[in-house]
Amino acid sequence: PQPGYLGREDVRNCSTNPPHLPVTAANTTIQLAALRQWMQAWNLTAYIVPDTDAHMSEYIGKHDERRAWISGFTGSAGTAVVTMGKAAVWTDSRYWTQADRQMDCNWELKKEVSISSIVTWILAEVPAGGHVGFDPFLLSVDSWENYNLEFQDSNRRLVSVPTNLVDLAWGSDRPPMPSQPIYALPKEFTGSTWQEKVSTVRSYMKNHAMAPTGLLLSALDETAWLFNLRSGDIPYNPFFYSYTLLTDSSIRLFVNKSRFSLETLQYLNTSCSSPMCVQLEDYSQVRDSVKAYASGNVTILIGLSYTTYGLYEVIPKEKLVTQEYSPVMLMKAVKNSREQALLKASHIRELPFFSPTSKMEAEGQELVTMIYSSLYLSAPSMVTGQSWGRWGLERQMENESFSSGPSFETISASGLNAALAHYSPTKDLHRKLSSDEMYLVDSGGQYWDGTTDITRTVHWGTPTAFQKVRKAKVDSLGSIQWSRSNLFSLSGRMVEAFARRALWEVGLNYGHGTGHGIGNFLCVHEWPVGFQSNNIAMAKGMFTSIEPGYYQDGEFGIRLEDVALVVEAKTKHPGAYLTFEVVSFVPYDRNLIDVSLLSPEQLQYLNQYYQTIREKVGPELQRRQLLEEFAWLEQHTQPLSA
């Protein structure tokens, strides 16, 4: 079916006179004028505004939302470029409609994400001899190298401007840096002590072919993981702004010291200077301190993907040891048995958040209103999702002491809104639930033992045959085993085709990745585990989400997401193959399963999964006296028959 765009009022239309702007669009004229003044002062003809912070975070704090402030577009991914006469945002298909709802006609929307497409546009807009500015603390070394390569021989100069021009334009309206306490995780929620982790990293450095004397950690989850420390600097992410410089004889932690309690300072051994003592230095001193360390007889290991050009440029090239990801990033990706147990335990608690949606399915539309009103407190009427933070509220109210709120803004969408992979309702833009439509909810929690992320799609009426996608999901999980032989070192990229196969067979696809790693009370998207070309090979002990979907523009959206652990497969000849063990325990909507599409093996897999859900989650629901949820579980995990 063709998307029904004609006459839509929820998105901008810049080709009419006057242009049509929805109420959700931001007026960015003043912001752009302010930025252009600063560009003029710095003699720049174009300025690049990336979507990240100085740690290459995927999700960022309020004071780092520069791209959102200048353009109005709030999606998590997308680069803006401003010239003296034009402005454009590049983003991927998850956010195209959102960008058309949020941006005014000052902005062009570019439906691509590669650096080469950005540079092609800049070269067309910036005359020869022009200067293109960027903040060196907002580009990774990798990204800078790509931009630099693209600009070579172009007669335009890429200029590193250490003062951020958007910050200057933003002025006093820019939110301040967070300052809440940084705390140590209790022992029972960690895989090993920080001292054990530091020793392991030092052994890695010692045995490295280049034997670096120092390791610089820039990603926020690297430092949080290494020291078993957490805070809440970024919404939904328990991190704190920091860097670590770990050497063979010292540990330097760059952070705002006033955020530690006396107890945490003792935990870190900050009152000594031996190799197992943590020396605290101010967060803002990192560049100078790395520069000073690099002046000695040293070599420094950095991960190119998460270190900014701003730090890279102060280390002499002959003293650099580089690899794509730091050893901490690689160690964190493989969970030890204790971390595996913790992450699994966190997923067992998820079912109650998903069962109400299925109550609606069973009990009809009128009751939906009632259930929503009673369950989600502030629900004024029958609208989709968590507008005003209802799902989030529910998670915050969890009385388990180790619950720490949601792990991302809940995606809750019905009908055509669900065709936007990352739609979240707002006061201005929401939709009444209907039994004739599909409803998608993607929600996750931050618990002290693990981060969760599950998506389910339901239909409360009669879905069409076109809307049933069960087969693709089963294929991506149950039937797949892959060689773990070093000869092939099979990456997720090669396994991913199985997840898309059922869609590809009929000429369909989905425009986002198939999965991502997930942390122990860390990132909900914990890279570099996943199914993409820049992800590392899957290995035993890694966790990944598996989330195929399908999005029919202007009509509906489907996504089914589970988290799975990579384990050894039980094959006739054991030891050489890996497979997935699903650790998300929420049944799928039976309404969306066409049993006739499933092979006997797929059916057997699904019924085995349902049996596991009963065994794992049933006792937990009974322990917590969640009897309604328990009855729902029993009903929705009845074995399916061919």
Binding site: N146, A421, H422, D442, V524, N534, S545, E547
Partner: peptide, 24 residues
């Protein structure tokens, strides 16, 4: 939560590396 797909540039790099490692 759905992840972004990587850009073509990095895919080329990965494929080139894969081919190099297979042929070495």
């Amino acid at each position: 939560m759905a992840p972004i797909t990587t850009s073509l540039t990095s895919m080329w790099v990965a494929f080139t590396l894969a081919i190099l490692s297979w042929s070495s």
